[in-house]
Design a protein around this nucleic acid. Structure first.
Lengths: 203, 203
DNA sequence: GCAGTTACGCTACGGGTCGTAGCGAAAGCC
DNA sequence: GGCTTTCGCTACGACCCGTAGCGTAACTGC
């Protein structure tokens, strides 16, 4: 959501928080039934039981609305503490895959990423509300693995960025491009590849 | 493109091959200037110097047109023979990254992939004209590395799928989501991670 | 050459969505 | 009650979609 000027003004009729929730839920519902391209803001407004103008007062357009609607799906992401780096990775990747398997994420996420290639503000919105939240999990997992002694202390901060791109990219590509499920078997093979590299994974 | 019934009929005025090329080039030009969402078929037709109806006679819609226009960008992909698996991987990843760095690929590819999540025919079109061509490179690289003795003979065919998702996914995510260049430094770090795994890459 | 067939350019059209303007009513603060 | 902001509603011009219809161009086979 976007704040009014600095913080919400104390005067006038307040915005309905229920309307926000209804609009975002209606957006996800429309994503499931219609997909990104056939989703219209008028339809979302009708589903949410609000006027179309109300929707436009809160979001600049389809892109921003869908980013917020999809971002809520990632709220549940948490890195499990399963006792080993491999198990932790498998756990978080399975969670990530489960979210991407949902139709409202599949059809919406790639579309807004595509739009963000020509809209810096949109990319920033995606980064802060979706990507950074995921990347934090990678940081936590690394810290925990280092405490266990499974990973050496890391000095290069770009390694985290690299791992994040590899993990998230692989799951997204498997799910959306190859269009095959990132199930337990796949996740195990992927985790092994990540940990021991190509030579080990081929054994 | 789509063939007429089995093979092109021998009667009647033939379709202009020049028009095909002009339309696809105009599509890429429009992708650069306008991006996916603001690209209209009427505009593409005008740029190509053909009538809008001609465009609709050859492509079912925006999705199919952009897939074909973007697919041509991947024609130049070839796996180099640099003498070692690591060097081969770095070479092909750099080529792939160079294509994804082009604006007509960035804005178009993700958009059609997003659309393909709700359109099986479109996904199949993407698979045959873009994805499979990339996957062939992975196969060639593996065969060559096995001949060199760098990789053990592989029995599990799903390993190729896994590697492909990891490589393509990582580059795409780095380029389009993280929005940072997959330059030589990054590619070297990625290749090392792929070959020796997390423990080695962290050293 | 001439008939047959297909592609092409052009124009026009109904249908749908966009994003905004304007209005009166509702809901909160002082 | 007065002030302020939000809300629902209606209406609107602008744009794009995808198709139909027509006359013309290009190529094949007789």
């Amino acid at each position: 959501m976007q704040s009014r000027t600095p913080a919400s003004r104390a005067t006038g009729r307040p915005r309905s928080a229920a309307a926000d929730a209804a609009i975002l839920a209606a957006t996800r519902e429309a994503l499931v039934e219609l997909g990104w391209s056939k989703l219209t803001l008028g339809d979302v407004a009708t589903r949410a039981g609000v006027a179309k103008t109300t929707l436009y007062r809160r979001w600049a357009g389809k892109n921003e609305l869908v980013v917020d609607a999809v971002a809520e799906l990632f709220d549940e992401l948490e890195i499990p503490n399963r006792g080993s780096l491999a198990a932790d990775i498998e756990g978080v990747v399975l969670q990530f895959a489960a979210i991407l398997a949902r139709p409202e994420a599949r059809s919406g996420l790639m579309a807004v990423i595509a739009e963000s290639t020509r809209d810096d503000a949109l990319r920033e919105r995606i980064r802060t509300s979706i990507v950074e939240r995921q990347k934090r999990l990678v940081l936590e997992g690394r810290t925990r693995a280092q405490a266990r002694g499974e990973l050496p202390p890391e000095s290069d901060p770009t390694t985290v960025d690299l791992i994040f791109d590899v993990v998230a990219g692989a799951v997204v590509h498997r799910t959306l491009v190859s269009a095959e499920p990132a199930d337990e078997r796949w996740v195990r093979a992927f985790t092994r590849l990540l940990l021991v590299g190509l030579g080990g994974a081929a054994g």
